[in-house]
Simulated assay, not measured.
Amino acid sequence: MALKDVRILIVDDEIFFRQVLRALLEKIGFTVVGEAGDGAEALERYRALRPHIVIMDIYMPDMNGIEATRDLLALDPNARVLVASASDFDCDTQAALDAGAKGILMKPFVPKEIYEMIRKLLTGK
């Protein structure tokens, strides 16, 4: 699959982080098909857009990224969720992995790490 064919949904309540992540992903060559500001909106966008990958923040109002990841995988067991976090709390990132996230992207974002994580997720290698 070519990079431009990889469809990504960004979920973060902070517009700044969505903009930074979108710019990084597009610079790498991926296609950002949408954005959401909370977990409930993420579920709606996922249903409508069917992205290959969802990059989800952990800390959001209303429905956080852990709850949204759990609900997303109940909706589609094949969903691929990467959780984005600036947290140093291992319990939060472990809770996201326990909910079904496939990996953790730490903020601030490093383009090479994003690329490698997505490549591994898509290829299984």
Rank of each mutant, 00 (worst) to 15 (best):
A2M: 15
K4R: 15
K4C: 15
D5N: 15
D5P: 04
V6W: 07
R7W: 02
R7L: 08
V11R: 12
I15V: 13
R18N: 10
Q19G: 06
Q19S: 05
V20G: 04
R22Y: 06
A23N: 10
L24D: 15
I28A: 04
T31V: 05
V32N: 05
V32A: 04
V32W: 12
E35T: 12
A36L: 02
G39N: 06
E41A: 15
Y46C: 11
Y46I: 03
A48D: 14
L49W: 13
R50E: 13
H52T: 00
V54M: 03
I58N: 07
Y59L: 12
Y59R: 10
I66D: 08
I66H: 09
A68Q: 11
L72M: 14
L72E: 14
L73N: 03
L73V: 06
A74S: 11
L75S: 06
D76H: 06
N78K: 15
N78P: 02
V83N: 07
V83M: 13
A84C: 14
S85C: 03
S85I: 14
A86W: 11
A86P: 12
S87G: 08
F89M: 08
Q94F: 11
Q94L: 13
L97F: 01
D98N: 14
D98Q: 12
D98T: 06
A99Y: 00
G100P: 05
K102Y: 03
K102R: 13
G103H: 01
K107R: 02
P108Q: 04
P108L: 06
V110I: 02
P111N: 01
P111S: 01
K112W: 01
E113T: 08
Y115Q: 14
I118E: 02
K120F: 04
T123Q: 09
T123E: 11
K125C: 02
K125T: 01
K125F: 00
